[in-house]
Each structure stands twice: as C-alpha cells, then as structure tokens.
C-alpha cells in the first residue's frame, strides 16, 4: 500500500475540448492543507519543452535554504548564493544530480545546472538542520501548492497522462504519488490526501 491517494472527482464530460483546467487540493491525513507540494501533469503524448525562466535561486539565509522547495525545468541553472555570515557546504546525494559545493563564505555564490528531471535533496554538510529540495521537471504543466494546499493546472491537453503529486515528506516512494489521468474536456477538481512524515528539525515542512 504505497499510495493513499483518494480520487474523489471523476471525469464526467466526454466532450472534446482543446484545453482544460485541473484544480487539485492537497491535504494531509488530518485534513490540513499541504504546502510545498509540487503537482505535475505529464501527457502521454509528451509535452512541449519548458521555457527556462532564469534566474533560479536557492539561497542560504539565516542558516536555512530558501525556498524550501524550488521547481525548475530540466536544464535550468540554479545559483546558490550564501547570504549568511558563516560558510556553507552544500551537497546532494540524489541520483538526479549528485554534487558538492565545498565550503564557501558569505557573499559568495555558486551555480549548478540540473539537466535531469527528478528530485534533488540538498543539505549542508556542516548544518544538519539545513534542508531543501529542488524539483526538476520536464513538463509544462506544473504548479506548487501555497499555504492553502491548492493548485490549478491550466490548459491541459486532451488525452491520457500522468498526474504526479510530489512532496519532500510524503511517505510515498520517492515522495511521488502518481495518478493516471485522461483529459476529455473540463475536469472536476481533485482532492488528494498525502501521508506526510514529520521531521522536528527540518527547516521547511509545511
């Protein structure tokens, strides 16, 4: 039982429409809205390349990464400016992009390119509490939940696809919850419940 996704909505309309919007609201098992969840839709037919909208920044400020979750298209370059007075050693062992940015002091910055889609968990070697995630995507349909845990994917093309809901603390494998989706006209909003792991000293959370 790797997924606890509950699909409340269903496809009601079979009328072919060029584009459809999908509203997804995400809560945890206690019903609270989940922030920083990233919802992507990957049409089976493939997606047009995503435009790079530089700059993508994963700053280190106040002994934390910010933002907690950064969504970037595959191939984007992310800068890691150190805005603290102390040095940081930023690393990741994630298969999508293993890297180490050895200690660099405040006011300095490093940049990395993330060519492969996937999740890159980044940490600071000398500050365990510093955690952040870069979600590398290769689809044009994506959104990140705000405090209300709600996203709206717009202009989804008709046809089958995979709706992926990811959250760094989701207990699902790789933090990803996959929902097969066939778009045929307007889509009823979807509510998704995720099992979220707690982590006392995590900087982000929700």
């Amino acid at each position: 039982m790797k997924t606890t996704l509950t699909v409340i909505g269903s496809l009601l309309c079979a009328t072919p429409v060029v584009a459809a919007d999908l509203r997804v609201s995400i809560t945890d098992t206690s019903g609270k809205p989940v922030r920083d969840a990233v919802v992507t839709y990957e049409p089976a037919a493939g997606s047009a390349p995503v435009g790079i909208k530089a700059p993508y920044v994963m700053a280190q400020r106040d002994m934390n990464f910010t933002p907690y979750v950064l969504v970037v298209p595959a191939g984007a370059t992310v800068s890691f400016p150190n805005q603290d007075a102390v040095s940081h050693h930023v690393y990741s062992f994630s298969p999508a992009r293993k890297f180490q940015l050895p200690l660099y002091g405040g006011g300095l910055s490093r940049s990395l390119t993330f060519p492969t889609a996937g999740t890159v968990a980044i940490g600071c070697n000398i500050h365990d509490s510093m955690q952040a995630y870069i979600r590398v995507i290769d689809t044009a349909f994506y959104a990140q939940t705000d405090d209300k845990g709600v996203v709206t994917l717009t202009n989804l093309p008709n046809g089958a696809g995979d709706l992926v809901i990811w959250h760094p603390m989701s207990s699902a494998k790789g933090g990803e919850t996959h929902l097969p989706l066939s778009v045929q006209g307007p889509i009823k909003p979807i509510s998704v419940q995720l099992k979220i792991r707690r982590m006392a000293h995590a900087g982000g959370g929700y």
Binding site: F93, S94, T119, A121, I122, G123, D128, M130, Q131, Y133, P168, G175, R197
Partner: peptide, 15 residues
C-alpha cells in the same frame, strides 16, 4: 524485550 533507538539517516532525505 529490547530498548530500541532508531535514528534516521538523512542525506538530507531519508536514506
């Protein structure tokens, strides 16, 4: 019975 301590290995996600 055993008194068990389990510490997560985080890199920084759970390894």
């Amino acid at each position: 019975f055993y008194n068990v301590v389990a510490a997560p290995v985080l890199a920084p996600d759970l390894k």
